[in-house]
């Protein structure tokens, strides 16, 4: 019997994953988050603060054989809200500290983000897992990079444990409401005048599939997870029948601040994404990780805008 601990149970992906895992007989799921889950699931849920010793103590108490670390950075950093930098990373620090003390741990799956590559005019057109990001890192990017450094330290202590880092492209689809998808599904989408970034997404179901695949087939390494293909923002909005509102830089900043007021949090790394875009190389995902998303980028976008049936089986 596998004992799986999932952090970030209140996130969209977390909720969907736990719901899927709790239906399986071969594992007991322990869900953790610091707020109540949005998606109902039938699993052992503990509400505790993710940034501190509580989480570490709980992990030692549960003694999991597998940890799925979805809330790898504090959600303030993802949403672009203020929190001191210590708070934002303490959760991961505590978690990896606890993992170092566990004896029966078999594999650790960490959800990272392709935002770790940042957005810079000097970045290559296609970002591979080994690419060194260029330019000044955003706060979110620094947090992600620091979190991935913790993995290296934990790996030294547990050389036999499998550490799978999945760098997800922005998750988009009918069952998520993360900040980027909420921004892109606004009726009028503010965009940067003169910039048409190339974007990549992963369907929410494919994201959960990828996590489940990692649970079933533990493979050590870092993998970009994104749907096949890519999309220019202008084309994406046209597919979604959304109206783009091109704004020059300063006004774009103002629009993002206004959006935050109306409860559409705009992450601080959003501007870079809207300027330079981000496309990752998914060869490793296909070949080494052995996972192929069922939706292409175009299908993901259409699903996200509910232009085609949500449960459409991609051909």
């Amino acid at each position: 019997m596998e004992r799986v601990l999932v952090t970030g149970a209140a996130t969209w992906t977390g909720g969907n994953l736990i719901r899927r895992l709790s239906q399986r007989d071969d594992m007991a799921v322990f869900a953790v988050d610091d707020r109540s889950p949005r998606i109902r699931f039938d699993a052992d849920f503990r509400k505790l603060s993710l940034d501190g010793l509580d989480l570490a103590r709980y992990i030692l108490e549960v003694d999991p054989t597998m940890v799925v670390h979805l809330q790898s950075v504090h959600r303030t950093s993802e949403e672009g809200r203020r929190a001191s930098s210590e708070d934002r990373i303490l959760g991961s620090l505590g978690l990896f500290g606890a993992i170092e003390r566990l004896t029966s741990i078999r594999s650790v799956i960490i959800k990272s983000d392709t935002a770790i590559y940042g957005a810079s005019p000097r970045n290559p057109s296609v970002l591979a897992e080994t690419t060194r990001p260029q330019g000044k890192p955003s706060r979110h990017q620094r947090d992600l990079a620091e979190m991935e450094r913790f993995i290296g330290e934990a790996r030294k202590v547990h050389p036999e444990t499998v550490f799978t880092t999945l760098r997800f492209a922005p998750i988009f689809g009918p069952n998520v409401g993360n900040s980027i998808s909420r921004y892109l599904t606004l009726p009028v989408v503010p965009t940067l005048l003169g910039f048409d970034p190339r974007l990549q997404f992963i369907h929410d179901r494919d994201a959960v599939d990828a996590l489940e695949h990692a649970i079933d087939n533990p493979i050590d390494g870092i993998f970009n997870v994104a749907a096949d293909g890519q999309m220019y923002l202008s084309r994406m909005l046209r597919l979604g029948r959304r109206i783009p509102q091109p704004l020059p830089g300063r006004m774009f900043d103002t629009a993002l601040r206004a959006m935050t007021r109306f409860n559409v949090p705009a992450p601080d790394h959003l501007k870079g994404l809207m300027k330079h875009g981000r496309v990752t190389d998914t060869t490793r995902m296909h070949e080494d990780f052995g996972f192929t998303p069922t939706h292409t980028c175009r299908q993901t976008v259409l699903c996200g805008y509910e232009r085609i049936d949500t449960n459409h089986d991609a051909t």
Partner: peptide, 24 residues
């Protein structure tokens, strides 16, 4: 510079040019 200039930044890619990075 092509990546930084408004309008040029996406048009130059669309017509088939690319950024002169070693990886590219």
């Amino acid at each position: 510079i092509f990546n930084m200039l408004p309008f040029v930044s996406h048009l130059y890619r669309k017509v088939g040019a690319a950024y002169a990075g070693r990886d590219d």
